[in-house]
Design a protein around this nucleic acid. Structure first.
Lengths: 229, 229
DNA sequence: GGAGGCGATATGATCAGACATATCGCCGAT
DNA sequence: ATCGGCGATATGTCTGATCATATCGCCTCC
């Protein structure tokens, strides 16, 4: 049995969570730990690097490695696309296009995209269903400057999110969560009362520095996103 | 100039986002890439491992490395504690204890903690202020079975979150976000109208498998959490 | 006593080689 | 034709050594 870098991680983690090594305190250096575990420094380095990545310790050249004084909490949320999400609930997924219109992008959208110039955009409103009941409203704007092909697609069968993933699978994005009150329109589409508290996910997406799409996802009442860490 | 594992990452990332290597397709193996970059396989390995960690590629022994067919989106949210959050807004942080009561844990809390046995718990309700205006309600339950010391603290000056961080800095947690309507009580405390949509953060925390605390953080209207990826 | 320079030191990264291990796909037996 | 076993192969990890680099803290000079 060789020493595994995981053993070292676990050892260090245990000493930290047990309080043997207090927050702010220096952790033994790599050479000492390597000697203690009778392994190569590279192995200790891997262990420490991952612990730093996880936010448990903080490393600085020459200064050494120390236990974070205030632990970092950076939960990672898995964001599946709607169809997967619905299917994971054991429900049958359904999709309906509500509205589709191409035209000049409104000013707020240009601002959202960080643009000065006038561009055309495709505006789509769709409804995602779980077992025929409304699950989520997708209110999306696609830049026709960046993706002219979008205009050829009528989006009556497949949702714009799945189409986009097939066209630009990898991109940069900014995502945010908030709570909004249902307006009359959203309430009608989701089958809830106006004023109900709804969970809103907003996402702006770029590809090679160019704005691609902005979407507002309004989930049915009671929606919750969860992460463990 | 030596080859940097970052160069290799960037090269692979570029080929993928440019579409040269399509989703589902096999990426050249480590030995070939090492030869191509005239570097050690360990360097390529580091690059590929990190790309896998980032969700861009998927690796399996013998099967090789392939571009993820559906890209993984796992945004990481930074969750600072309230005081830092308020100060980051440039506001003056304030704290007020509203209610404090110790007693047997209610059934729903035992269920939340995954417990069968009866335990005592400390229930705290506090208000966090930004420039003297309500910012967030903290409704917290602390297991007195796990943290008997909590009962000695009156929490009139410092919030339970900061106290907890000083006592159990490192722990496992489950966090979730949702939207709720303000009830009369919350509306009164936050100075908004009953029925307003509010952003709710819930967190359950464990230490060494033992339930420590459960908290509901109800933020003032308009609250938003954001991440980039 | 304050500023600035410099050496010691801990981490950052790479290398070439080795062995471990999961598993894909072929081939032979049924 | 189908199943099971087995070898080839790509990744997983460790080693021990070397060079690079940020930076802490002391020492000197004014």
């Amino acid at each position: 049995m060789k020493t595994d870098f995981r053993d070292i991680k676990q050892y260090i983690r245990r000493r930290i969570v047990a309080g043997d090594w207090a927050p702010g305190q220096l952790v033994p250096n790599e050479v000492d730990l390597a000697a203690r575990f009778e392994c190569a420094r590279a192995t200790v380095n891997r262990a420490m690097r991952e612990l730093a990545e996880e936010g448990l310790v903080e490393r600085r050249r020459k200064a050494g490695t120390r236990v974070r004084s205030t632990p970092l909490h950076r939960p990672r949320f898995e964001i599946p696309f709607v169809r997967k999400e619905v299917e994971a609930l054991g429900s049958v997924y359904g999709y309906r296009l509500i509205d589709r219109a191409a035209g000049p992008a409104p000013d707020w959208l240009k601002a959202q995209f960080g643009l000065e110039t006038d561009i055309r955009a495709l505006h789509l409103v769709c409804l995602h269903l779980a077992d025929s009941a409304p699950y989520q409203i997708e209110d999306r704007w696609i830049s026709l400057a960046a993706l002219p092909d979008a205009e050829d697609n009528d989006f009556s069968e497949i949702g714009p999110n799945e189409w986009l993933i097939s066209v630009v699978p990898f991109s940069d994005a900014e995502i945010s969560f908030s709570a909004i009150a249902a307006d009359a329109e959203a309430a009608g589409r989701l089958g809830c009362a106006a004023g109900d508290a709804l969970f809103l996910t907003e996402r702006s997406t770029w590809w090679n520095g160019q704005a691609i799409t902005y979407v507002r996802l309004i989930s049915r009442p009671g929606h919750k996103v969860t992460a463990r860490y």
